[in-house]
Structure formats: C-alpha cells, structure tokens
C-alpha cells in the first residue's frame, strides 16, 4: 500500500477546490461540513452525512443550518474510514444487491487492522450507523472467537485486574472452555 492510501478520504475531502464544490452544488449535491475532535474539517456529501443518524437528527432539528457540525467524540482517522464505508453503502441503497453488499462489507473489514476496527466502533456507535456497527461487531467477534484471554485483552487494551488465584479459579471452573484455543 502506498502512503497516500493510509488516509485517502481525508486528503481528498480537504483539498477539494472550491470551484468543484460549487459545480456539485449546482447538481444538487449539497455538502455538509463536519469537524472532528482533532480539529480536522471534513466536507461530506449530504447523502453520506445522512447515513449518520446522529447528524441526520441534528439537521432535522435545524433544517436550515449551514454551520459546521462539531463531532467532539470522533477522531479524524477512524472517521475517514467510516466515510469510506458509508459511500459504499449508498451505492447499495440505489441498487440493492444483498450478495454484493455482503461481499463488499467483508472486503471492507478484511483490509482493516485490529486497531482500525477498535477505533471505528466508538465512532460508528456515536454516529449511530447501525449497518456499520453490525459489520464491525461481527468482524471483531470473528477475530477473537478462538483466541486466548491474553489476546483479547491486548485486542481491546484491557488490563487484567484479577489476581492469579482468581484467574486460576475461573479457569478451573470451566476447564473445557480453555481447550483447543488458537495460538496468539
């Protein structure tokens, strides 16, 4: 992967010349400006922004608002990936094809690292994008299913707060659950 592929949406959205925005507006593609927690500005097509239930209800309350919408809980990096997903989703809205949608969704999560997934989940949850949250949660479940307790802790960045005696007891209680676990 090239270095520009790391954050394609972000750069593309920000560096768009204003003339292009104007022409797209003429084609009734209204843009919405969103500001992430790390002060990055995103200009997103209205149809994409309406995929974010949180943003949608914001505009339902204030339909004529032209203000920049602040997203205090959303960092830029996972947000650009979320936009990438929503852009794909819109295609299937116009042209529903369940098999193709499934394939596209699995392709989307396949390319993502564990860290990407863990970062995107709170964003999808905050923006209330049900389809994305469903895809992400299933992807995480698939990745941790046969893994060890230690793997899952590092996956989510959780500290072990059990004493070694407590851990031994939990393991002993359900020894069958600790058989045939994939190596980390």
């Amino acid at each position: 992967m090239s270095s520009s592929a790391e954050n394609p949406t972000l750069t593309a959205e920000i560096t768009k010349p204003s003339t292009e925005i104007a022409t797209e507006t003429a084609q009734s593609a209204k843009k919405i400006t969103l500001k992430t927690s790390d002060d990055q500005i995103f200009e997103v097509e209205e149809s994409v922004a309406m995929e974010f239930a949180t943003v949608k209800s914001f505009f339902e309350d204030a339909p004529s608002s032209t203000d920049t919408v602040p997203l205090p809980n959303v960092p830029a990096k996972p947000f650009s990936q979320v936009i990438e997903f929503c852009k794909e989703q819109i295609k299937f809205k116009a042209n529903p094809d369940e098999t193709e949608k499934k394939r596209s969704n699995s392709e989307f999560v396949k390319e993502k690292t564990n860290e990407d997934l863990v970062e995107m989940i709170p964003v999808a949850n905050y923006l209330e994008i049900k389809d994305l949250l469903d895809v992400l949660n299933q992807a995480v479940a698939d990745r941790i299913q046969n893994r060890s307790v230690e793997y899952v802790r590092s996956f989510f960045g959780i500290d072990n707060d059990f004493t070694s005696e407590e851990e031994a007891l939990l393991r002993e209680e359900h020894a069958w659950a600790f058989e045939d676990v994939d190596e980390d």
Binding site: Q138, D159, D161, A177
Partner: peptide
Amino acid sequence: DILSRLPAKSVVRFRRVSRT
C-alpha cells in the same frame, strides 16, 4: 453485542478477561 455473537465456549473463557 460483540460477546453475544460468540459461541458459549468463547464467552465462558472470556470471563477471565477482566472483572468488568
């Protein structure tokens, strides 16, 4: 939601992840 997607065996094992 994530845990509810896992087979019982995994869930029982992951009780050991943390107190929460």
